[in-house]
């Protein structure tokens, strides 16, 4: 049994390393390639571009926004390279290759990168040799071409990338011994690390400063929304007792409960942000996650649904749930 478990966990690690390598190769490779193509085209066409280039086109494709050429190329470059790089960072930080949506994420990243590059390379190339950028029109076919390239590259990446990893086998739970005359309550919390909270607080502060600096009133609404989101999504109180497993966010809502009598299985499982596509209250088909960190989490199965909570000391929590279940018989 032990050797069997040992080999499955090694298999799992190997599969994970393989998925990681493939996802990173495709994503980093495409972002690098796109950067090289864009920078190459920009440098190569610069001598033949007009002093002012069209940077914006109206619905009919006529140029209606202009910028001096060098800043325009730099800004477009920052966009063409910056957006995919930001997504790439999300991929790496969230270890998205481990999740159920890994392929969709990487394929979207690949398609977006290819599409953006095609669009901006095309809009640059059509202005080569033009004396007045106002004469330039961006045909609808160019936008279609960009979309087509995006779809093709996205699909091709999805074909190359490995299937989503099978879910990790849950650990066996040792039930707490609970007698028929015992009453047991367990109170725990699922919360984010202080570092992660500090990052969130910082981002709220940035928006608040932007609201103050810009005087744009609706930005305050955004600040309020962010504060509510942070309070509602970063800390959960969890109670396990004869009634079942109840949880609620720091604000009191959202909240929920799985009745003890509805619980069909209890386990401790390893989760990463990628498994649920982020943190907070994450709803996947048949699976609800209260995710505040990666690592071991309590997993409660009720019927065909699962509740996963990254509660502190998931092992004790699971053993209490299992003990209560057995005491009830």
């Amino acid at each position: 049994m032990t050797s069997h478990n040992g080999s499955t966990s090694t298999d799992r690690e190997a599969a994970e390393a393989d998925a990681r390598r493939k996802h990173l190769t495709v994503s980093v490779g495409l972002v690098l390639l796109a950067s090289i193509v864009y920078v190459g085209v920009a440098l190569f066409t610069l001598p033949d571009l007009p002093g002012m280039v069209a940077t914006h086109f109206d619905a009919t494709g006529r140029a209606d926004g202009f910028m001096p050429t060098r800043p325009a190329l730099l800004m477009q470059g920052a966009f063409v390279i910056g957006v995919p790089v930001a997504l790439l960072l999300v991929l790496v930080a969230g270890q998205a290759w481990r999740g159920a949506n890994a392929r969709a994420f990487s394929a979207t990243l690949a398609g977006l990168t290819a599409g953006l590059t095609t669009l901006f390379v095309s809009s640059t190339v059509i202005q080569v040799g033009v004396t007045d950028a106002a004469d330039v029109t961006l045909r609808g076919s160019v936008a279609l071409l960009a979309l087509g390239v995006a779809a093709l590259v996205g699909l091709a990446s999805a074909l190359v990338l490995p299937r989503p990893l099978p879910r990790r086998a849950a650990e066996v739970v040792v039930p707490m011994t609970i007698g028929p005359s015992d009453r047991v309550s367990w109170f725990g919390r699922a919360h984010m690390s202080q570092g992660a909270l500090a990052m969130l607080a910082l981002s709220v502060l940035v928006v608040a400063l932007a609201a103050m600096g810009s005087g744009i009133a609706w930005l305050w609404l955004l600040v309020l929304l962010l504060v509510i989101l942070v309070l509602g999504m970063t800390s959960f109180a969890v109670t396990i007792d004869g009634h079942g497993v109840s949880w609620r966010a720091a604000l009191g809502v959202p909240r929920g409960r799985v009745k003890l009598t509805d619980i069909t299985a209890v386990a401790v499982t390893e989760v990463s942000f990628g498994d649920f596509g982020g943190f907070g209250v994450r709803a996947l088909p048949g699976r609800l996650g209260l995710i505040t960190r990666s690592g071991s989490a309590l997993q409660v199965t009720h019927g065909k649904r699962e509740l996963v909570i990254t509660v502190d000391d998931a092992h004790t929590a699971a053993s209490v749930v299992e003990g209560l279940r057995r005491a009830r018989g």
């Binding site: 005359s181 009453r183 047991v184 309550s185 367990w186 109170f187």
Partner: peptide, 9 residues
């Protein structure tokens, strides 16, 4: 925090 009561003691 675990609270455990025995109603028979």
């Amino acid at each position: 925090m675990l609270i455990r009561l025995d109603t028979t003691i």
